[in-house]
Design a protein around this nucleic acid. Structure first.
Lengths: 124, 124
DNA sequence: ACAGTATATGCCTTGATAAGCATATGCCGA
DNA sequence: TCGGCATATGCTTATCAAGGCATATACTGT
C-alpha cells in the first residue's frame, strides 16, 4: 500500500477523507457517521496516516484526526498533464470536442465480438 | 473494478495513460515501450476501456488506443473540495501552518459534536 | 486500584486481482 | 486457401487487502 492511488482506491477511505474535509473528527465520530466498525475505521486511518493523508492529535483517550494535503496534492500533480487537455483552448479544440462527444455517447458502450461483421475498413 | 480510483490504482495502468497522453498507441507499441507482456497490456487496456479511460479504433489487425478524458475529470472533480485548501497558499514552508490554521478554523466552526458516545448521545 | 471509555492491533477467513502461459479470434497478403 | 501477425481471452496460481472478532493498550475519574 505504498502509493497514494492505492490508498484512495478504497471507498471507505475516500469517505473518511471527505468527512475530514469538513472538520477534524475522532475515531468514534467517524465510526458513527460512516457506519463502519471501530476496527475498520482504525485500520483505514492507519493506512491513511502512514500514507500521510491524515494526522492525529491526542485528546485524552481519543485521537482527533484531520486532513493533510500533501498526498492529495500528489494526485493533483499526476492529473496535471491530463488536465491540460480539457483546459486547453482553440488550437486543440477540435480533438477535445471529439473526446467529449465520445464521452456523451459512452452510455451504452459495449464491445461485443461482432461475429460476421464485415466492416473491415482497412486503408490504414 | 467499478470505480475510476481502483482503475488508476495500478501503476501499469497509470503508465499506459501517461503514454497515451502523448499520442495514441497500438497494443504492440505499449507493450514495447512499457516492457510488459502482451497479455498484461491487453488486460489492462480492457480494464481501462471498460472504465472509459481509453477507446480503440481498428487499424487492420491492430487496435489504436487513445485517451478519453471523462474518467480523469471524475478524479479531478473528487479532488475539487480538497483543492480549495491549498489554493490559497503554495509556499512549501507554509504548508504546515496552513493546515494548522485550517484545523483551527474547523474547530471553531463545528463544536456541536464533541464528546459523543456510541450510546444514544449526539446532536446535542 | 478499579471500572469504563477510546483506540489500536493480531489472527483468521474470504474475495479480488495481476501476471504468465496457452490458445482463440480476426485480419492481412500471396 | 494458407501462414503469419496483432490482439483478446480462458485458466491457474500467488499475493494481498478488507473486515470481523477478540484482545491489548492507554487514558480517565473516583
Amino acid at each position: 500500500m505504498e502509493s497514494v492511488f492505492e490508498v484512495i482506491a478504497e471507498p471507505s477511505r475516500r469517505a473518511i477523507l471527505s468527512l475530514l474535509a469538513g472538520s477534524e473528527q475522532s475515531v468514534g465520530e467517524i465510526e458513527q457517521r460512516l457506519q463502519m466498525s471501530q476496527s475498520a475505521v482504525s485500520k483505514h486511518l492507519r493506512v491513511l496516516r502512514e500514507a500521510g493523508f491524515v494526522e492525529a492529535s491526542v485528546d485524552a483517550q481519543r485521537r482527533l484526526y484531520r486532513l493533510r494535503l500533501e498526498p492529495l496534492k500528489e494526485v493533483d500533480r499526476w492529473l496535471e498533464p491530463f488536465r491540460q487537455f480539457w483546459e486547453a483552448h482553440v488550437d486543440a479544440l477540435e480533438r477535445h470536442l471529439d473526446q467529449m462527444e465520445q464521452a456523451e455517447r459512452m452510455k451504452g458502450r459495449d464491445q461485443s465480438q461482432r461475429r460476421g461483421s464485415h466492416s473491415a475498413r482497412n486503408t490504414k
